[in-house]
Design a protein around this nucleic acid. Sequence first.
DNA 1: GAATTAATGCAACCAAATTGCATCATGACT
DNA 2: AGTCATGATGCAATTTGGTTGCATTAATTC
Lengths: 143, 143
Amino acid sequence: MKYSEYKKLLKDHTLRITDCRINVLEKFYNTTHALSFKNLEDALSDYDRVTLYRTLSSFIEKGLLHRIPSDDGYASYGLCREDCTEGGHHHDHVHFKCNVCGHIECLPAYHVPKVELPGYEVNEQNLIVSGVCKICRKSFNGE
Amino acid sequence: MKYSEYKKLLKDHTLRITDCRINVLEKFYNTTHALSFKNLEDALSDYDRVTLYRTLSSFIEKGLLHRIPSDDGYASYGLCREDCTEGGHHHDHVHFKCNVCGHIECLPAYHVPKVELPGYEVNEQNLIVSGVCKICRKSFNGE
DNA sequence: GAATTAATGCAACCAAATTGCATCATGACT
DNA sequence: AGTCATGATGCAATTTGGTTGCATTAATTC
Ligand SMILES: [Mn+2]
Ligand SMILES: [Mn+2]
Ligand SMILES: [Zn+2]
Ligand SMILES: [Zn+2]
C-alpha cells in the first residue's frame, strides 16, 4: 500500500497525518495477524510508548482498529475492514488465537452464529476460538 | 447453603478449610452473577488483597471457579457447576455481559455453537454475548 | 498435642497503563 | 508563504492491578 493511501485513510477518518500514525498503519497493513501493544512497541521503538498508546486509542475511536480481548488479559488490535466509523464498530467475525505461535487473527469470512437468549436483549457477540492456526499446523505436519 | 456443605466442597477439591475460603465460597454461592476481583475485595474487605488473589488462583486451579475474560480487560470469576477438577475445566456455556448493570452471567443452559474452520485445529471456544440482561430489561419496561 | 505443611498478612516490588505539562507539528485561514 | 489555533508528541511522574518474599499463624496428619 502506498504512502498517499495511508494519508487518505487517515484523512477519511478525521485524523491528522503524522509520522507515527503512518508507520502504525503501515505495520498493521503489512501484517496478516492482529498486533498486541508489545508487538507495536517492539516494531516501532523510536516512538514513545505513550504516543503508541494514544495512537491505538484514536484509531479505535475513529474506527480504524478494533480491540480484540484475549483470555490471557493482553488485548490485540485488528484492522477494521468493515464500515466502522467514529459512530461505532460493526464486527461480527470470529477471532482465532493460535496456542503455538500466539498470534491472533481476524477471520472476516466467518461470522459469529447468532444465539437466541430468550429474555435478554442481545447487542453484540464476541467469539474467540483457540487452537492451532493454518501455518503452525502445516509446519507441524508436512514441514 | 450450609457451612458444612462449603467445608465438604473444599475438602472434595483438596483445599484446606479456612475462614477466607469459606467466605469467598459463600459469596459466590449467594450471588447470581459472576464476580470480579473488585467485587470480592469490596465484599470481603477484612482479608488482604493478596489472600483474595491467592484464593481465586487456588479455586481456579482446583476446579471450583473459572475465569471469564471480558472485552474491557477485567476478568470475572464464575462457579464451576460442571465436573471441573484439578485436571482441567470443561466449559462450553455462553457468558453474558449486561451493558446496563455491568454484571456478567454464566448461562449454563446455552452452549457455544461449534464453528468449523477448515485448515485450523479448534481446541476451545469462548463466546461472550453482551446486551441487556433479564433484570435490567424488566426494570426498564414494566417498572 | 507435637510435627508438618499450607495459608495469611504485610511490605516491597513490578509491569502496564494513564496523566500533566511543556514543546513541537499540522492544517486552516489569511 | 506566514500566522494562528489546535492537536500530537515526548518525557517524567503517577496510578493501577497484580505478584513475590518472608515471617507469622493456622490447619492437618499422626
Ligand atoms: Mn477482528
Ligand atoms: Mn461461566
Ligand atoms: Zn500459529
Ligand atoms: Zn443488567
